[in-house]
Design a protein around this nucleic acid. Structure first.
Lengths: 181, 181, 181, 181
DNA sequence: CATGAATGAGCTTTCATTCAT
DNA sequence: CATGAATGAAAGCTCATTCAT
């Protein structure tokens, strides 16, 4: 990918996250990326297509990560590893998580990325379920839904509800819950 | 409140929920409410102020409901009652919950309603905590955060992540968790 | 004239002078005069007609003053008296003079008040000329034009060109010029 | 400067002069300049900025003219030359002078161009004073103010007060006054 | 006399997109 | 690859005026 194109993607990600897709204009992106309008339209069909490419890149990363050989650890350890990975990302890339939530709840962007959103959800769900399958085949579906809801709820509250969220304390509680599951 | 004004609020609520704040134009609202632009600006200072009024109305309803005399039931019963109330609303007023999430994750609308969002969060938190205080004064803060995260996570997954979400099954699991807490 | 009507005229004069005719809305006038829209339109046919009435009132005052019995003083004394009257008004009612200049140079308002402006100019010219006639019948026309130009130029420079205008010094010079004319 | 941009400036100058700044809409300018709205906003930040650019261009021309080497003629000749230059412009570019007066007396436009108006006034004053300095250092300030007031007053009366103004006769009188000063 | 709800045309400005160079 | 002039639709908002009460 050309330097300029990846610069555009990087700038667009930042601006979409900070101001929302609707409140970021192509001119904003041009200015910040030091690129002309013509060039953006040389690389991308439309503003939507920038969003799609950003989202797709992340989805592909997720797929890649997921296709890694399954850990042979105990399922409880796997869950704790997953929790720790997610919380670590959450803390270090708030803006990116906010962008994802923003996209998912804006009706317009949601529709644009409907398929990808569903694909990602399925990916995560299956990944989690494959762990819980090792604990209880009968209950793995329910347990997966609950696990994902817990994680998403914490993220939502941390990012957008409470001003001073005791993320560490809650993470610890979650880890404890699944340690002796 | 005049007929026309409340019609505008009602139409705006619907359109904001369906299409998002940014993707709903004043003209859209006029058309749907059968009202002229001038009239909207006679009743509301700006498009923002419509959003604020919608949000404030709901906040005030929440405050009112919250000021009702405390139930004398066991805290476990109170929690279950709360869960059932929220899930019932969730199912019957999807659009309204979607609007709230949409507002909270759009940077622009989020900023407009920052104070109100915080006020609501505090309200809900205190309400939940006053129940958990009756169970364990020492752990009530942590338990409240977790309870709220669970509810929010389920709502988020139900509304915007999974296509076919087994809401009833999950609600049942949640009720069971808190029944014998 | 009703209290409310004269309040409207007074407020409109102030706002037109401060912000210009085009930048004063009927709503502004209503707010400042504590009067409803309906009432303004009960007393005045339109926004223009308020302006016309303001201007006409002043013109009529000028006519009245002018119809006073001619002074029997020496023409030089009469000129000096005129100069002193005008300079005194200029200093004590800056806003009002500014309004007049504003009206005369705004193409739209100028057209609305074309006739009145011309009537006033003729009135002033004849008044001045009748003094100079007593000095030199042959040159009175030219002298009148020059006298009026001097006065208007000073007013213009005082009101709208120079930041710190030595009005007194210039007035003195003018008085000296005409004292021994 | 691009063809289209200078066309916009030219058309805007004409329309502002004819109808006033407030009564000239961007759509008017577009129509007359055969240009799209988008293009105007590509070249100018706002309607105000068009006005500023028009005014600045003229100010810069004035500065340039003023920086020409001083004439070595007698000061009386210099004054007469100045009078003749101004009167000639006045006759040949009425619309332009009207625009300037219009701008100076409209509160809104006046504020926008406050600095420039003051800069111009200082420029003219210093230019005139440097001539009178050669006649009487002690009285040059007063004489300059009077000279400028005479010129401005005549312009004002010619352009906006009297219907049939004997400009030539008055110019002659002025020239005579300063010829033997 | 008095109110203020209601209208609709028109305002300035923004923006995704196209295209000649 | 790269520029930026150019478009035109649509946005939020203002305002003089009307009219039922």
């Amino acid at each position: 990918m050309s330097d300029k194109k990846s610069k555009v993607l990087q700038v667009a990600t930042k601006l979409f996250a900070e101001n929302g897709f609707e409140n970021t204009s192509m001119a904003n992106i041009c200015d910040e990326a030091n690129v002309s309008k013509g060039l953006i339209y040389h690389h991308f069909k439309s503003k939507e297509s920038i969003l799609i490419e950003i989202f797709t890149n992340v989805t592909n990363q997720m797929i890649e990560m997921n296709s890694a050989p399954k850990s042979s650890q105990k399922p409880q350890r796997q869950l704790i590893h997953l929790i720790e990975t997610i919380f670590s990302q959450l803390e270090h890339d708030k803006l990116f998580f906010q962008l994802n939530l923003n996209i998912m709840f804006q009706p317009i962007t949601r529709q644009i990325l409907k398929e990808q959103i569903e694909k990602r959800a399925a990916l995560l769900f299956n990944s989690v379920k494959s762990i819980f399958d090792q604990i209880s085949l009968k209950e793995s579906t329910l347990l997966s839904y609950i696990f994902i809801a817990e994680i998403d709820g914490i993220a939502l509250n941390y990012l957008s509800v409470f001003n001073e969220y005791p993320l560490d304390m809650i993470k610890e509680a979650l880890v404890n819950k699944y340690k002796h599951f």
